[in-house]
Design a protein around this nucleic acid. Structure first.
Length: 789
DNA sequence: GCCTTGAAGTTACCG
DNA sequence: ACCGGTAACTTCAAGGCG
């Protein structure tokens, strides 16, 4: 029979000594199904010295029975664009590959072992052009369902499924969950502290809250497992679940001797690649991975992200500080509040899932990583899997990941801005500048011509400044890959114009074009990453060099035709708007540089200081853009950010420095009176390394050390919120974690005036000649007090 | 020993 | 575990002064 199904998860198992690929998915009729394929075997390649193919082949064949090798064949492949003969070694058991790889790497005549580090199920998908999170068709027969599998049907494939479409996914059952733990000191420790609440809700509105019997969490873990298995979701989501909830539950389950069997094949979540947990047959997604990409939210707590996305307002929910959860648990009058809090959390989590999953699905089907891995994988790996897929299609061997030393190279140009307020300024942007440069100049590791190689100059593109040469033909790997991405995106965007933005089809396609853009834009960064399989410094270096040339020439041309250039950064040019001249420039760029440049926006007014990468502008609709300034940085207090934002608004809309001064005076007065909420004084900074590795005792490091003393475990990537208090010389001595600052009297008000409000306001007002003394107002200053005192 | 100064360390931003 | 360019803060140690 023929079956159309959507792939949700993939793994493999051994049936005797037969590796069996298991494609977990949803059939067209809505049934949950697994498609088994026993036809595929693991393999890898040996790159051998030229002419020794047959010789090495015979040697390898001698090991056939020892290593359960099925086949050795000489095949025609390409390696960095050059035709090569490689030995394809096919084995029986996937787990044997690492060992065989090591043995064969040592054989005489073997230069390299390639593609031996690609996981079996990924290999299967790549070779058969199968995409996760997409529809496929397969000729299959129904077989008996193994005991304990939570699916309706199991099929055995007659041949590998065929990709059909990555259009709208089937209705997917999403199960959001969240746990609360009991701990009095610092952070909960799984070995010691019980889980007290487990909350879950599905996208069908099916809610379940399990509360522990006092501090015994055995039953609720059991009930959670039952609940999850009974509801049998396709997707399980949490917030920070890969780093917290799952490892925590796994430890608690072990301690309680409870089985955490939530997968569709009856097992527990298993630690997998990219630091994620895999739940067989379902997609376990940690939404924090996607929240990380929302740069507008600086402190990415569940509450903050949910609020930003319009999922749940902070005003309409219970918020309990982690450190006080135990108090709410212990007090019978407060406990209902805690339950409510857990409910709000899990509802927010589900809300986030609805926002992120459509994008995740598209990203998954484009780069080819299973839905549960694609969020956990870093940008570099997402790009790389996309490239690996393409390499297979082009018959290119996939290079190994090797350790390389870091090499510096020059990046983009940033112009010095013209300081001041400028009116009617157009921002021109090159469309996808780096991808298009790589395409038009055919920049790729396989088209690179090293300096020692002679080649007629008319056959290569010679890079300005650095001189790297790349063949004009044939099309390089990066060109082919990027062209495909940009064309696909263009097609989708054209289609989107005809669709109703409310339609489900629009949503799917819009997420898809966003995912295509993300991958295309990240490909340049990938090629300059020393960890990349397709790393080539010259490739990255040539791309930025052409970029510098193009923007410089555009600026020169703009000036030549009389456009006033205010600023520029990498691929953008800010000019005083003159419709005719701008149109001329756009055409010139297209004609002379072969690239597209477009008006991105027109500012009614834009303000620059002397600093690069920092400005603010007023848009025609009255909105204000703030770029790079303190107001958009996460490491300034809300107090300072609010002040700067307001100052910017006054300057851009009313052009009145005097009014801005009065406003700042008022804020400082409020601060001195204690009329500013404490939370506005919190300064957030990330811990970027192990605490003991810091060379300098920065304020946030000092605050983190206090937290460690209190029993918190501070790990890399964590944000520390501190308030600067009185008593102490250095700021680091005065910085206290905000959770231990309860009284306004502790706050060092002078710090917030001199190091937060004043610099943030003066950044803007300084240009208008405003001095610090005018901002701090009539209240006598410290220096004067000292003088008279 | 105190104060100034600039380098170094650190973070977060822009495109 | 994508890139380089950039601003800005805080700490820290060297250098200057007396």
């Amino acid at each position: 029979m023929k079956l159309k199904f959507w792939i949700l998860d993939i793994n493999y198992g051994l049936v005797g000594s037969i590796p069996e690929i298991r494609l977990w998915g949803i059939a067209e009729d809505g049934s949950r199904a697994v498609v088994l394929d026993r036809s595929f075997r693991p393999y890898f390649y040996l790159l051998v010295e030229e002419g020794r193919e047959e010789d090495v082949k015979r040697t390898v064949e001698k090991y056939a029975s020892k290593f359960r090798i099925l086949k050795v064949e000489v095949v025609d492949k390409r390696y960095f664009g050059r035709p090569v003969k490689a030995l394809k070694v096919t084995c029986q058991i996937p787990k044997d590959v690492p060992r065989i790889r090591e043995e064969f790497a040592r054989l005489p005549g073997v230069k390299d072992v390639l593609e031996a580090d690609i996981r079996f199920y990924m290999r299967y998908m790549i070779d058969n052009d199968i995409y996760p999170s997409a529809w496929h068709e397969v000729e299959a027969e129904e077989v008996e369902k193994p005991a304990g599998w939570d699916v309706e049907k199991v099929y055995l494939a007659k041949r590998p499924p065929k990709f059909v479409t990555s259009d709208a996914p089937p209705p997917l059952l999403v199960y959001a969950f969240d746990i609360e733990c009991y701990n009095k000191l610092g952070e909960p420790i799984a070995e010691r502290d019980p889980v007290i609440i487990i909350a879950s809700v599905t996208n069908k509105g099916d809610k379940a809250i399990f509360a522990a019997e006092d501090k015994n969490d055995r039953t609720i873990i059991q009930r959670f497992v039952e609940d999850l298995r009974r509801k049998n979701p396709d997707i399980v989501v949490g917030y920070n679940s890969n780093r917290f909830d799952w490892p925590y539950l796994i430890t608690r389950a072990r301690k309680n001797k409870v089985r955490l069997d939530v997968s569709r094949s009856g097992g527990a979540p298993a630690q997998s690649v990219y630091g994620h947990y895999s739940i067989t047959g379902r997609a376990n997604i940690d939404l924090y991975d996607f929240a990380e990409d929302i740069y507008e939210v600086k402190v990415r707590t569940l509450e903050n992200v949910a609020e930003y996305l319009g999922v749940k307002s902070k005003n309409e929910r219970v918020i309990i500080e982690g450190a006080y959860i135990y108090k709410y648990w212990d007090d019978p009058k407060l406990r209902p509040k805690l339950i409510e809090y857990a409910e709000d959390d899990v509802e927010s989590t589900l809300g986030l899932a609805e926002k992120f999953i459509p994008f995740a699905i598209q990203l998954s089907s484009i780069v080819g990583l299973p839905l549960d891995q694609v969020g956990a994988a870093s940008v570099g790996y997402r790009v790389e899997w996309h490239l690996m897929r393409q390499a297979f299609k082009f018959n290119e061997l996939i290079p190994n990941r090797i350790e390389r030393p870091y090499e510096k190279y020059k990046g983009a140009i940033v112009l010095k801005p013209k300081p001041g307020v400028h009116k009617n300024i157009a921002v021109l942007d090159f469309s996808s500048m780096y991808p298009n440069i790589m395409i038009t100049k055919n920049i790729s590791p396989d088209t690179y011509v090293p300096p020692y190689e002679d080649v007629p100059l008319d056959e290569v593109y010679v890079t300005p400044e650095v001189g790297h040469k790349f063949r004009k033909a044939p099309a390089g790997f990066y060109r082919r890959v990027l062209e495909r991405l940009l064309e696909a995106r263009k097609r989708i965007r054209e289609k989107l114009r005809e669709l109703n933005p409310e339609s489900p089809e629009y949503v799917v396609l819009n997420e898809r074009q966003k995912a295509l853009k993300v991958i295309a834009n990240a490909t340049y960064g990938y090629c300059g990453w020393v960890g990349a399989r397709w790393y080539k410094r010259e490739v990255a270096e040539a791309t930025t060099a052409w970029g510098r040339k193009f923007i410089s020439e555009t600026i020169r041309q703009a000036r030549k035709i009389g456009l006033d250039v205010i600023y520029g950064d990498t691929d953008s040019v800010f000019v005083r708007y003159d419709k005719a001249k701008v149109e001329d420039l756009v055409k010139w760029v297209e004609r002379e540089l072969g690239l597209e440049i477009k008006i991105d926006k027109i500012y009614k007014k834009v303000f620059f200081t002397e600093a690069k990468k920092r400005y603010c502008g007023l848009l025609p609709d009255g909105r204000i853009d703030v770029v790079g300034l303190e107001a958009v940085r996460g490491d300034w207090s809300d107090l300072a950010k609010d002040v700067q934002e307001k100052v910017i608004e006054i300057i851009l809309k009313e052009e009145s420095p005097q009014k801005a001064i009065e406003y700042v005076n008022k804020v400082i007065e409020d601060l001195r009176k204690g009329n500013i909420p404490l939370h506005k004084l919190i300064i957030w900074k990330t811990i970027t390394k192990r605490i003991e590795d810091y060379e300098v005792e920065a304020p946030h490091v000092a605050a983190a050390k206090i937290l460690v003393q209190m029993g918190y475990q501070i790990s890399k990537g964590e944000k520390i919120g501190y308030i600067v208090c009185k008593d102490g010389e250095k700021i680091s001595e005065r910085a206290k974690p905000y959770i231990i600052v309860n009284d306004y009297d502790e706050v060092d008000v002078e710090y917030y005036i001199n190091n937060q409000i004043v610099p943030a306001a003066l950044r803007i007002l300084g240009y208008f000649g405003v001095k610090e003394t005018q901002l701090v107002g009539k209240t006598p200053q410290k220096s004067l007090l000292e003088f008279f005192g």
